[in-house]
Structure formats: structure tokens, C-alpha cells
Design a protein around this nucleic acid. Sequence first.
DNA 1: GTAATTTCTAAACCTAACTTTAGGTCAAGG
DNA 2: CCTTGACCTAAAGTTAGGTTTAGAAATTAC
Lengths: 152, 152
Amino acid sequence: MNDGLSIGALAQRTGLAVSAIRYYEAQGLIKPWRNAGGQRRFERADLRRLSFVMIAQQFGFTLPQIRAELDRLPGGRTPTKADWARISEGFRAALDARIATLTRLRDNLDGCIGCGCLSLEACALYNPRDGAAEMGQGPRYLMGDTPAAQKG
Amino acid sequence: MNDGLSIGALAQRTGLAVSAIRYYEAQGLIKPWRNAGGQRRFERADLRRLSFVMIAQQFGFTLPQIRAELDRLPGGRTPTKADWARISEGFRAALDARIATLTRLRDNLDGCIGCGCLSLEACALYNPRDGAAEMGQGPRYLMGDTPAAQKG
DNA sequence: GTAATTTCTAAACCTAACTTTAGGTCAAGG
DNA sequence: CCTTGACCTAAAGTTAGGTTTAGAAATTAC
């Protein structure tokens, strides 16, 4: 009787909409086979893949990024716990980075609340986009008021 | 000569696109007046408003949420530093909450990497949506493998 | 063996936050 | 005065991540 899970069964067990699962297939996140009648059939391992997708989305990954992670799973065999653990460690790094960014932002904000200026010249509060390699455009002079030119 | 800033000048000083500024006006985030020829003219205080918008967006606020914050600024006079500082404290709370959520998520993930299961039954890693009032649908049984039924 | 439920595909629709386009108007410089 | 660049509006297009719809075929339930 192991002829795979129907899309509806998968939807029930993951809580995802059937349409979302089809969409994920279109994005290459899962690769069901088809039965004689042309309907999708899924392995139990796909439950785990979809679980990964849902968690990764909460972490702010885009579907292409998630796909890239999933593509690192071994082909030809059902991924083991160790495979999943290896993949999951990427989460850890991404989360650490995000927490660090937000904490830095918060610390800057603390200084900024004190002066009320919201001036990014002074407070360095505005760092466009999370990452590291984006000092491209140079600082933007927001607020319009230099410290000397403020009127109160 | 204090007849206000043109949209182009505002764009240059904020780094925003002219089209974005027009869009923000349509969303009610700024309210320029028009000169004799029908062109938009902005106050210097609008630089600060746009700065606020840009920062708030980094913090993950939507434009309607940002508008709600801006609407708390006093009408009839140019906001003071103290006004802005008051508004900015909302950021602090939002940031604290987000950092707490991510930290919790990370701690759960740490446990999860150890077992490799990614099972949300076991790891409680999956908490749909940040907030507090969403225990509505009950836990979802992801992964499909109960601890006893695993094959890997 | 039929009725009800699922599933199928393709294409259109949805929200957020903008950008682009098209066709015209305003303003500043020579 | 005339040209060039900045500006105007309205509408359509864009991306991500899906949902909805329509009509047809497969599967399941009785």
C-alpha cells in the first residue's frame, strides 16, 4: 500500500493549502511523481521538506534560497537525520546574523532616542540592507539638518 | 526664498526615487502643498518624516503602520526633537520583541540540530507568526514521522 | 454503477511597495 | 523666445508568494 501520499493528504498534514504545494512544486522545492491517472504522489520525506520550507520562511529566507538549501540534500536516497541536521546549521548562522543586526540597530536607536534627531549622519541608525557588502552608494544625508543648522 | 523643497530635491537628499515619494504621498505619509504651477513643495520637516519611513521599513513596519505612527505627531506645528524621540520609542519595543522572538527561535533550533528531526511536534520550532494571539488552529503535525515510526 | 469528492491544468487574480510608460505641462538658462 | 530638464497624472507593469476560477478527468464512497 505504499503508493505515496496524495496532495490532499500532504496538505492536511502540513497545514499548507493544496495550491501552495503545487506552487512549491513549480518552484522546484519538491518533485512528486505521478500515478497512472496523472495525479501527484509524494514520499513521506516530502513532509520533512515542506516542514523545512515553512520554518525557513519564518526565518526570512526566500523560496529560491530555500531551494538552494534543499538542493544540498543527497540525491538518490532518503535524507537522514544527519543530512537534515547539516542543513539546519545554515539556519543557525543566518539567525545569529539577523539577531546581531537587530541588536546593533537597537543599540543605535537607544542613542538616537536620547537626542531625538533621527539624523543618520549623527546616529548611524540607517544601514541599508542587512548584509556586509553594500557600502556601495555612500552614506545618504537624511534629515536635511546638519547639527549646526538645526532650529530646535 | 523659503518656498519649500521640490520633489527632486527631496529625492536627492533622501536617496528615495521621485516615484517613491509620490507613492508615499498617495499613502498619506507626507502632505506636500502645491505651488502656483501645480508642483509639489515640501517642508524641511518632510525630510525627517521620510527618514522615519525608511528606518521604520527596515524594522519591518508596513506603510499603514508607519502612517499610524506619523499621525501621532502634533498637527499645526513642526515636530520637535522630543516629538520624534517619543515616536521612536515605539521602535524600541518592536525591536525588543523581534529580537526576543528570533532568540527563542534560535534556541529551539539549537535543540533541533542535535536531533536532526525538524519535527515540530518534538522541537516546537514552528510557531506560526510572531505574535501572541494565534494559538487558534492547534499544532500542526508536520514531518509525518512519529518518533516510533522513523526509518532513518 | 453512480454520486460525491479530489485532483488536474492554465490562466487570472491578489497584496505590498514600488517603477515604468505615455502624453502633456512647468520652470530655468541662454 | 525657445529649448531642455524637471514635473504632472493616470494607468499599467513588476516581484514574491500565493489563491481563485473554470472546466475536465480521476478516485473514492456508498
